[in-house]
Design a protein around this nucleic acid. Structure first.
Lengths: 137, 137
DNA sequence: TATATTTACTTGTAATATGCAAGTGGTTTA
DNA sequence: TAAACCACTTGCATATTACAAGTAAATATA
């Protein structure tokens, strides 16, 4: 595929060049929740990503070292995706998005527990959850 | 303009519906750095946003309560944009993006000082800088 | 006071990206 | 051995973006 074209050297801009679209962070979210996902798992997510978009985003995120493919233990027909360390390092960002959303949107009940935990002791939560994510990867 | 169409109730998804595109966070970045910007200031930024895109993004961000217009003290021809409290609350998110980028990209020298300060004591930095942003708004 | 310039946009149009439906080719299950 | 599953690809209509040019009000200049 084609190389990512940088718009500038600004750290925000460079970051957006990697995951700054409507879908990438949702893929990363799925991987942070589920630790590992198949292609089909992503398609089943609530936001109904189109299959061609999913394919190009997965490719893009892999090229940028945010996610990695690994072979599925059960079947050669399946592919497992997981976060790399670079992807796991997006956890603090993900937490902050959740906290912002918690302040300005109505959050579904099943998501409140994690947000509450992150609010109680942010650093501790991130440390513990990072460890858990790295254990799987 | 048309209402934002939610893809799901997920906090990440809802947040992305507001600022999850290639340009919105750059607009917010400019406002966090400069505190107040005119339309022309945004156009002058390094990433060269197209004027029609800028206009629609500013409108979108204003509709979503992230930024606000105010009259320019010098001239009726000029318009000043600033962050609302909701926009200022994106500072922790912005800091985390910078920290992630600092780890994985080459950061321009002139941006390193702020990142260093944020790394030294994140909470203190956010608190102090939030205060400064609110002072202007 | 007339004219030029600045400012914040808008409009038109071509290029690109997205979204949807259907298809493909290996792999696994029955 | 056929049907079903899985991870994609392909084709095409629609939507979004990018680029260039234009507009109207406000201000600066002659």
């Amino acid at each position: 595929m084609d190389t990512v074209k940088k718009r500038s050297d600004c750290p925000i801009s460079c970051s957006l060049d990697v995951w700054g679209d409507k879908w990438s962070l949702l893929i990363i979210r799925d991987l942070m929740f589920a630790k590992q996902c198949t292609y089909g798992d992503f398609l089943k997510s609530g936001e109904r990503i189109a299959t061609n978009i999913l394919a190009t985003r997965l490719q893009m995120l892999e090229e940028n070292g945010v996610i990695a493919k690994l072979s599925h233990p059960d079947s050669k027909a399946k592919v497992l995706y997981k976060l790399t360390d670079k992807g796991i390092d997006l956890l603090p960002l993900m937490v902050e998005i959740n906290l912002w959303a918690d302040k300005y949107f109505t959050i579904p009940a099943e998501r409140k527990a994690m947000i509450k935990e992150a609010k109680k002791d942010k650093e501790a939560f991130i440390k513990a959850y990072t460890k858990e994510l790295k254990r799987v990867s």
